[in-house]
């Protein structure tokens, strides 16, 4: 956004992903053991994202084949998709936080001087972290309440609370990413969108 014209030219080659380079394996910038753990979590999250999406396609098609060819619908198909969508969403929000991919409206923010942007970014990251941790806590409570009531999914006949397991985990991981981003911004001179994405580093890649 700082150079609208160059971003215009750059974006001519930019689509969903056609010209994205195959994403290199993520390496955490965090020091020591923390970095190893972060890298591992990132890997797990990407596998969950990819597997979740592909499973969803297979499951949906299988239901069509069952209904159309074998005259018998897969009754748990919809419930399975629901489980997958929750998994994808909550693995994804943490992944997106790590890679600075959450949607934001940065027009005014970008117009500020670096001196103002830095404390603002720290405040944004901290406040976001607080809400993510809060939601992690309340979604855990929600899950426990569900477990206490014993509600089951009508077709799969498994307890409903099981499908929400990813929710508190996802919120907690997202909160952690934002907290680390705030800390990184306090320590380093540059301004960071996430622990390893520098603000404005590559307009196309990261500013969404």
């Amino acid at each position: 956004m700082k150079e609208p014209h160059s971003s215009q030219t750059q974006s001519q080659t930019d689509t969903t992903s056609t010209d994205d380079p195959p994403s290199p394996a993520y390496r955490s910038d965090l020091p020591g053991v923390l970095g190893t753990v972060d890298t591992a979590i990132s890997r797990i999250e990407s596998v969950m994202l990819a597997a979740g999406v592909l499973l969803m396609a297979v499951n949906t098609i299988a239901n069509v084949v069952g209904r159309f060819v074998f005259q018998s619908s897969i009754f748990f198909s919809e419930e399975l998709n629901r489980i997958l969508i929750i998994m994808i969403t909550f693995a994804g929000i943490s992944y997106a936080a790590r890679h600075g991919r959450h949607i934001r409206m940065s027009a005014i923010y970008d117009a500020l001087s670096a001196k103002l942007r830095k404390p603002l970014m720290i405040a944004i990251a901290l406040i976001t972290a607080v809400f993510m941790f809060g939601l992690a806590w309340y979604s855990l409570q929600y899950m426990l309440t569900q477990a206490g009531r014993g509600r089951v999914l009508p077709s799969l006949q498994i307890p409903v609370w099981l499908i929400y397991v990813w929710v508190p985990v996802g919120f907690f991981m997202t909160g952690t990413q934002y907290l680390l981003t705030a800390i990184k911004n306090m320590i380093e001179r540059d301004i960071y969108l996430s622990t390893n994405v520098l603000e404005g580093y590559d307009d196309d890649e990261f500013e969404i």
Binding site: E78, P154, S155
Partner: peptide
């Protein structure tokens, strides 16, 4: 999507579809 309703319509000869 209720197991008994599904069972009923199977018994009635139809192909229950959620």
């Amino acid at each position: 999507t209720n197991p008994l309703l599904v069972k009923s319509y199977e018994a009635f000869g139809a192909t229950p579809t959620p």
